[in-house]
């Protein structure tokens, strides 16, 4: 790839928007800044890929299955805490709040 005088400016604005990308995904940016980012993405393939894949990254992590606490772990916990008489195995294990 050959460097044109334009590349430097382009790179600078990418870095400028990069700072706000994470908040952009969380929807906590001002409308003006969102519009600016979207206008920039329309002309910048790299930033478009970064935003798309960053959003996908977060989504994939949110969809990781939650590990369940094994009953033995819970039983040992009650024992350590001197709460043995109150121990009961989870029939329907607690569901993640969502």
């Amino acid at each position: 790839m050959s460097a044109t005088p334009h590349d430097h400016d382009q790179h600078e604005s990418c870095r400028h928007y990069l700072r706000s990308i994470s908040e952009y995904l969380d929807g906590t940016l001002s409308d003006t800044l969102c519009d600016e980012i979207e206008a920039h993405m329309a002309t910048c393939e790299n930033c478009r890929v970064v935003v798309n894949t960053l959003s996908k990254t977060v989504l994939l992590y949110r969809r990781l299955p939650s590990p369940e606490m094994p009953d033995e772990v819970k039983e040992r916990l009650f024992k350590v805490l001197d709460l043995r008489p109150y121990y009961h195995a989870d029939e329907s294990s607690e569901k993640p709040a969502e």
């Binding site: 939650s66 590990p67 369940e68 606490m69 772990v73 819970k74 916990l77 009650f78 805490l81 709460l83 109150y86 121990y87 989870d90 294990s93 607690e94 993640p96």
Partner: peptide, 15 residues
Amino acid sequence: AYAQLVDENAGRIYR
């Protein structure tokens, strides 16, 4: 109450 606190929170803390 102790047991209830453990019951309600242990799963999340473990995770």
